[in-house]
Amino acid sequence: MAHLAHYKEAHPLPFVITHWINAICMFCLIISGLFIHYPAIPSIMGLCRGLHMVCAFVILINLFARVIMAFFIKSAQYGGTREGLDRDIKNYLPSKGNKHQFLPWIKYYLFLKKDHPKGTKYGSPQKLSYAGIPFLLLFMGFTGFALWGPTCDWGIFVWFTNLVGGIMNVRIIHFFMMWVFIIFTGLHMYLALIEGPAQVAIMFKHKEHGGMIMDPETKEIIGEDLDPSDPDAKRYFN
């Protein structure tokens, strides 16, 4: 068993909920956006326009809530442990546990390195991409509001529209950004799945999964927790 145990401390419930909201909104935004771009099914055009705006507001409010919560809610910084909790925002910042691990991660993904790199709960490339997503979402929202009737004549959106050379170019940027999210989501799902289905279970069902236990102090594997849901099972940290 090469995987670490997956505990709720890694993904506290509020973050599971915001992740669900993100996933649903993103799906609805992509589908409705495609139908707004070209009304292939004419009768759902109005529905798509409404849904697109509702999901846009929900995903942006969700983004702000998620970022604010990251400063207050503590989560595990390392996989395979219930200990060593710290403010969640630190998961997205460089940390000592990942020192000089960016290149090894890339090498691992390119099959140039045999062993799975060790480090914090999120690997270095993962930290980088998760830290970038809020900015991509904000930019996506920004280009969206530069296109939306009620807001497109606001000074800052007019400035941006003029900067990129007209509404058509804002639309194309908004469209390309959608594909960036599609590619990100595909990559995200793939990379999460190759780390094992337990990742998906904890993120979506908030279901814990047994595995190896890591001591967050020494970063050493110190045991195995086969069934975290069994209260009678011998547990290392209890």
Binding site: A2, H3, L4, P104, K113, K114, D115, P117, G119, I221
Partner: peptide, 12 residues
């Protein structure tokens, strides 16, 4: 089960 996790990073 994936690749085994390294015991020590390449850098260290």
């Amino acid at each position: 089960g994936g690749a085994p996790i390294e015991t020590e990073s390449d850098w260290s």
